[in-house]
Design a protein around this nucleic acid. Structure first.
Lengths: 339, 339
DNA sequence: GTGAAAGCGCTAACAA
DNA sequence: TTGTTAGCGCTTTCAC
């Protein structure tokens, strides 16, 4: 490993000026003549100089790195968020370091510690489903590292939060099912210890109540939304005395699985069973029948999150607040209007 | 912003020992008594000390950050690769900073410069389709930053490369189409200036040749695989005197689009038109008919790439070489055996 | 086994 | 406008 990097001292020596002059010139500071500025830039280019951001960061006590913490980068929603974050960060000259928790609190804590050690300029996070205690994130604040939460947030944390209205999305979805004529509507829900899933379940219940639709036993289930869960719940429903004629599924993967199982079991979707999922992804458009879903604006949420983070990083505004992004119900064949 | 971080000097002062002792204790160096080691750790925990990696990196002239450069994080394959990279990096105590090129060479150059300035420990990259000149990547090498390329590689670069055998994958796919009885097979190809797509086209041609299948005019097309491209090609094929009865599509997105268009046009897939795509993703399993595809092992490629990068970073082995990952043809309904 | 001191490359007072 | 100087927080020789 050669590691023969040019430093500002090299440039300074060649030009017979002080290193600080080089620094000023390269950073476009005001108190410097255009002439030397040009001279310095020229020589820097000639020697192939690239600033050492490690040294710069240490000196300024501030990096140009944003830490992004999320459950899994390979889930569609999260990859959309990351893409949004990266696009804005890039324009601002920031870099993003990403880490997955795999829904493990222990790992979330470890990553947060790492971000802290890296002295990231700020952190954007989506909490793991298991996260109840948030002291690890509070420590960031204590160290002067701004935090923005998205999707799975914790209200006890004093920071900006970007969310969707899970209650409303669920309410919309279920109201839609009711409108197209479903009478026996079930909810395949997510982990009950996670707020977003609680809200979705609440939206489901509320919609039933308002429309005076009966809730049958075992029609409101909290699961981990794994393949096994979906399979188990589906077979239970299909062998029960009361079968649902409409299902609101709390996650997009589970929605796809359920739709596929139903079709394979010979059930007519949507006629015998209408399905709407929370969370849209490309497969929803392709599955047969195509799957209705409440679409979460991941890319946009990412962009907003990082913009708000920059407000804090750059000292413009660092308050606490919640941005609620609009949700859109996309009606496809799996819940297309019957009579 | 409080920014009241504890340093090793604080610990040293409290313990009335030298900062170097703290450093040694915390880094588990050999020349230090267990007693002070324990003492130091205890005090560090008590004060809530977290190492400042910026300072550490500057001092060691080496960061614990891996730069990952790829076209788009929100494409399934790439998100899989990143996930694989992150999982291994995390275990090694490294962080990953990711950047998207959006298939822009200019941006690829800019990001590379940035990685260089960040003094990343190494870089893992998938070149943009537009990348022909690779001097920006050569500069990394010159600066002692190891590089590993994956998927879209450049053989003039002296580094490890992780790829799939695009020729073979295409050959397999097309041979399969031939085996199930297709006689008029077409190829919806990708950008012709990109090696991987050239190889896929070559595999297509070779399979036809070997099996003595005629190549009809306009049956071997290079496109950008956009929605418009797919639509245009599809309608051209369907209105031509000779319609294909089998198509090998160079990308998974385009494969999904084509399948959907065919079904919507009332064409029986696979009976009238069999389809196989290069690249698998979740939607392939769900689309109706489900879409056959050559599966690229993204997660595994990511893990291998980063492992090889560590070999170079940690000075074990830094040669040049190519790892070819196995490709698997997954046969689904879109090309299921007819008689 | 521990301390003293230099230095990683840069920035930012303070002087001139 | 430019130079001098003192760090940023850590690691690492070199002494003791």
């Amino acid at each position: 490993m050669p590691v023969s990097n040019v430093t500002i001292n090299d440039i300074a020596r060649e030009l017979k000026v002080a290193p600080s002059t080089i620094s000023r010139a390269l950073n476009n500071k005001s108190q410097i003549s255009e002439k030397t500025k040009k001279l310095v830039r020229q020589k820097a280019a000639e020697l192939g100089y690239d600033i050492n951001l490690v040294a710069s960061s240490l000196s300024k006590n501030k990096t140009n790195i944003i830490g992004v913490l999320l459950p899994n980068i390979n889930r569609y929603f999260f990859s959309q968020v990351v893409s949004g974050i990266e696009s804005v960060a890039y324009d601002k000259g920031y870099q993003i370091i990403i880490a997955q928790t795999n829904e493990s609190l222990e790992r979330e804590i470890e990553v947060t510690r790492m971000f802290n050690s890296t002295r990231v300029a700020g952190v954007i996070a989506c909490l793991s489903v298991k996260t109840t205690d948030v002291s690890h994130l509070e420590k960031l604040k204590k160290n002067g590292i701004p935090l923005v939460l998205f999707d799975r947030v914790d209200y006890s944390l004093d920071c900006q939060k970007i969310i969707v209205d899970n209650f409303d999305g669920a309410f919309q979805a279920v109201s839609h099912l009711i409108k197209i004529g479903c009478k026996k509507i079930a909810h395949l829900g997510g982990p009950s210890d996670c707020k977003v899933f609680q809200e979705r379940a609440r939206g489901f219940s509320e919609a039933l109540e308002i429309h005076k639709i009966q809730l049958w036993p075992n029609f409101l289930l909290a699961t981990d939304l794994t393949h096994e869960d979906v399979r188990g719940v589906f077979s239970m429903w299909m062998t029960a005395p009361q079968k649902p004629d409409g299902v609101f599924v709390a996650g997009s993967d589970a929605g796809l699985m359920l739709t596929k199982m139903a079709v394979e079991a010979g059930i007519k979707v949507p006629d015998e069973l209408a399905i709407v999922a929370f969370g849209d992804e490309p497969a929803n458009e392709y599955i047969c029948p195509s799957l209705s879903a409440v679409e979460m604006p991941g890319y946009d949420m990412g962009r907003t999150a990082v913009s708000q983070l920059f407000d804090a990083v750059e000292g413009r505004y660092a308050g606490s607040g919640t941005t609620v992004k609009p949700l859109q119900l996309i009606v496809r064949r799996s819940s297309f209007k019957r009579e």
